[in-house]
Design a protein around this nucleic acid. Sequence first.
DNA 1: CGGTACGGTTGACCGCGGTCAAGCAAATCA
DNA 2: TGATTTGCTTGACCGCGGTCAACCGTACCG
Lengths: 230, 230
Amino acid sequence: MRPKTDLGALLSHQPLFRNLDADQLALMTAACHQVNIEKHQFVFHRGDPANGLYVVAVGSIKLAVPAANGQEKVIEFFGPGDAFGEAFMFLDKPYMVEAQALDDSLLIWIDKRDLDAAIDRDPSLAKRMLAGLSVRLHTLVKDIETVNLQNAMQRVVMYLLSQPREDGEMHFPFNKGIIASKLGLTPETLSRLLHQLTDAGLISVDGKRVLIPDVAALEHRMYAETARIS
Amino acid sequence: MRPKTDLGALLSHQPLFRNLDADQLALMTAACHQVNIEKHQFVFHRGDPANGLYVVAVGSIKLAVPAANGQEKVIEFFGPGDAFGEAFMFLDKPYMVEAQALDDSLLIWIDKRDLDAAIDRDPSLAKRMLAGLSVRLHTLVKDIETVNLQNAMQRVVMYLLSQPREDGEMHFPFNKGIIASKLGLTPETLSRLLHQLTDAGLISVDGKRVLIPDVAALEHRMYAETARIS
DNA sequence: CGGTACGGTTGACCGCGGTCAAGCAAATCA
DNA sequence: TGATTTGCTTGACCGCGGTCAACCGTACCG
């Protein structure tokens, strides 16, 4: 457990709590708890009660819905500054998803009641949370659109293009199996499609590193797929 | 356009604005606009600016994301008391979905700025909106889970069981094509699956009316499907 | 009335993507 | 260092669900 003194600085850098005045920051600091989570450990499981929300300080967290057969569908990834778990907290329902650390992570946990009080004192906090939830809704709708309206190849290409890249090179942030789940595919299919793109000379894969020599060509490939469907 | 006097009564019955005091209600009433939408008309299209939110007073609205080929994927249905469009309003982004009336409907429209002011005066309104967005997030996650982790038959059975029924009889609220889209299916497949359930003696279909003589048997059928997958 | 547009059903076909299994390379550990 | 596990790839196979087409009943309309 790190010393409590870190908390104020940590909080003030989170999008959710930016621009709080000193008083409010002190209040929130008192209400927050640091949670250290090792890689592969679960933050919470499906069915756990949701009494508060988490903010990622460092590390990365995977939100997924588990299936009966041990499979799982990754809903979203969270990195530093992201908040998660709010929706279930507001609903007063147990989590229907599970959260797992993809790296050693440091989280901030805030009790629902303390957050309620903070909102009463500062409506702008509520607005920021509304904005945050809206973003999440937006990405979920986009995901649904992606899964329903695009085929596997389109989804893969779109993912490759959506990731940050420098010098025409992008990195898979996690294992390919996890990426596959996020894309609604099996690892086998993802592997095959990447191989297909490699054969077409559009990318070259080396472990987690992917070289994209001609971004425009890759984009063109995706639109060609789209046209084929229409 | 109906007389303005209706607005106060309408608003005070919406979940979002319940428990407002007279002053606040008067303020909101002044900020609200009634919008009449005929069946098949669009409330907004993809790309329209989102300057406010809608609340359904009477009627029903379909939220869908349009595809290139004229297809569409239904995201959600909204009935009386439901609010929609908030997420895009808070994001200050144009709509990425379209809203269409499934019946002649009466909507209430509230300007973003007026709502902002109302939140500042009454944090409980913000909390109610947070709860509303949370519900939406919840159902979206559930949808993603359904589409990714369950096959077509399971989705159909689950839909049949999720709809309100009396005397072992349920009604399709809309055209089967629209239901099919919401379930991520083609109308053909939905038709076939319903026929299959009929052959199995689990349901009997007559137009929009579906008789479910033995609910438990139908539930059992769904779990059997689940087991087969695992 | 016949014409037609629409929603729904049915049949024939097929391709996408999942499943199962084997094999391989790198990481992890005794 | 060898043993074991984990991540990834590849091949063979196949079934679910989509596509395309024809057809049917009903509602709507001139």
